[in-house]
């Protein structure tokens, strides 16, 4: 990010109301060195407090209970085991996601990262253990109820309804979370960030290019910012230049109070963004801590880096 960003083909400027504060200093030449701000050990709800001009953050953030102890993490996994049919993919996974943080979930293929994401969003039910959202136990709750509690999950791969139009994709999401009255405004917000989507509002989403589909799935979650956003391989199949912008978008929404769980193959990018890192291997947590304490362990824990 040391050089000025050229206009990206296809990827329109993100959230316009992003505070221009330079959160991330110019990237040092060695990418391994974590450059994220010091890990916030304390949740940072105050960062979320100032409502942005469009006023769209207020609803979800206001829903966060202040809680008696400020240190309660937004999401807690407590000895969670899970699997598919006979297969067990996760073994006693425990970690916590502090409020307002970005947590990178790293590990080799098949380590169970996607399963963790699915467990957090309710797509896969744990066979053992418990999950908490703040103080509330959410173990066993179906995905659609968790979405209403503010956990959004942008799954791996194509995550748009290919047979619906762009606008229908957006409306489906907005109507369920904001009701019929709030949906048009959210639609407008989504279009104002991604004008490309407005151009293609009546196009069938399956005919969009890969980058546009990613745009659409981001627009779906962003126009009504959740408390917790889980993104799984958001940059898969995107050109490097667009990957950068995706990460900037994530950084911006984090600064607006949205807690993030990020699964990424671009480990360096994820480390730049994340405050904390959880590394999985073969279904178990092998590292859980602040990014800047990771040091050169990362090279040992994630082969090939």
């Amino acid at each position: 990010m040391s050089q000025p960003m050229p206009p990206a083909p296809g990827w329109q400027p993100q959230i316009p109301m992003a505070p221009p504060e330079p959160q991330i200093p110019p990237a040092p030449p060695v990418p391994q060195v974590p450059i994220a701000p010091p890990a916030p050990q304390v949740p940072m709800p105050q960062q979320a407090a100032p409502a942005d001009p469009a006023g769209y953050v207020t609803a979800p953030v206001a829903a966060v209970q202040p809680g008696p102890e400020p240190a309660v993490p937004l999401l807690t996994l407590d000895y969670v085991s899970a699997g598919y049919g006979q297969f067990r993919a996760l073994f006693d996974v425990s970690f916590a996601v502090p409020m307002g943080c970005a947590v990178a979930l790293l590990g080799p293929n098949g380590a169970g990262k996607t399963t963790v994401a699915r467990v957090c969003s309710g797509l896969v039910q744990p066979t053992n253990g418990a999950i908490y959202l703040g103080h509330q136990e959410i173990t066993g709750m179906p995905a659609h109820e968790l979405r209403r509690l503010g956990i959004a999950h942008a799954p791996e791969g194509r995550s748009v309804f290919a047979s619906l139009t762009v606008e229908e994709n957006l409306l489906l999401e907005f109507r369920s979370s904001l009701g019929k009255t709030g949906a048009p405004a959210a639609l407008e917000r989504a279009y104002s960030w991604f004008p490309r989507l407005r151009e293609r509002r009546n196009q069938i989403a399956g005919t969009l290019s890969g980058g546009e589909q990613r745009m659409l799935s981001l627009a779906r979650v962003l126009a009504d910012l959740p408390r917790l956003l889980i993104v799984d391989e958001l940059s898969l199949g995107l050109a490097p230049i667009i990957v950068d912008e995706v990460f900037e978008t994530l950084d911006t929404i984090r600064s607006q109070g949205c807690t993030l769980v990020v699964i990424e193959q671009h480990v360096n990018k994820a480390l730049e963004l994340a405050d904390r890192v959880v590394i999985l291997q073969k279904g178990r947590v092998v590292y859980d801590g602040p990014t800047d304490e990771l040091g050169d362990l990362v090279g040992q824990l994630i082969p090939g880096l």
């Binding site: 080799p108 293929n109 391989e233 898969l236 199949g237 193959q265 480990v267 994630i302 082969p303 090939g304 880096l305």
Partner: peptide, 13 residues
């Protein structure tokens, strides 16, 4: 067609 898509570093190499 994008043989490294979805592979991690080790697998890609």
């Amino acid at each position: 067609d994008e043989p490294s898509s979805g592979l991690d570093r080790v697998e890609t190499m």
